[in-house]
Computed example of a mutant assay.
Amino acid sequence: MGWITSVRQPGESDRTHFERELFEYSNHTIVQSATVENVFYAAVRTKGTGKVWALVVPMVKAGGAKFRYRDLMETDGPSEAKAPAAVLKALSPTTDEKALRWRERCRKR
Rank of each mutant, 00 (worst) to 15 (best):
M1L: 10
M1K: 05
M1Y: 05
G2W: 08
G2F: 03
G2L: 06
W3A: 04
W3N: 06
T5P: 01
T5Y: 04
T5S: 11
R8S: 04
G11H: 00
E12D: 03
D14N: 14
D14P: 04
D14R: 10
R15S: 02
H17C: 01
H17N: 04
E19V: 00
E19G: 02
R20G: 07
E21M: 03
E21Q: 11
E24K: 15
Y25S: 15
N27Y: 14
H28A: 14
I30A: 06
V31E: 07
Q32L: 02
S33E: 09
A34E: 12
A34R: 09
A34S: 13
T35P: 06
T35E: 10
V36I: 05
E37D: 15
N38Q: 14
N38D: 15
F40L: 13
Y41N: 02
Y41F: 01
A42P: 11
A42C: 08
A42T: 00
V44C: 10
V44G: 00
R45K: 15
T46N: 15
T49Q: 05
T49A: 02
T49K: 00
G50F: 07
G50R: 10
V52A: 08
W53M: 14
L55M: 10
L55K: 09
V56G: 00
V57R: 02
V57I: 15
P58N: 05
M59Y: 02
V60K: 09
G63V: 04
G63K: 04
G64R: 03
A65H: 07
A65Q: 11
K66F: 09
F67D: 07
R68E: 11
Y69P: 03
R70E: 07
R70D: 05
L72K: 01
M73W: 12
M73C: 11
E74R: 05
T75G: 10
T75R: 11
D76M: 08
D76W: 01
G77L: 01
S79E: 13
S79N: 10
S79Y: 09
E80C: 06
A81P: 00
K82P: 05
A83R: 08
P84E: 03
A85G: 10
A85E: 13
A86N: 12
V87P: 00
L88Y: 08
L88S: 08
L91C: 06
S92C: 00
S92N: 01
S92H: 01
P93Q: 12
P93W: 10
T94I: 12
T95V: 14
D96W: 06
D96E: 11
D96M: 11
D96K: 08
K98D: 10
K98H: 07
A99Q: 08
A99I: 05
A99L: 09
L100N: 13
W102Q: 02
W102T: 00
R103P: 00
E104R: 13
E104K: 14
R105N: 12
C106V: 04
C106R: 06
R107A: 14
R107W: 04
K108V: 05
K108H: 05
R109Y: 07
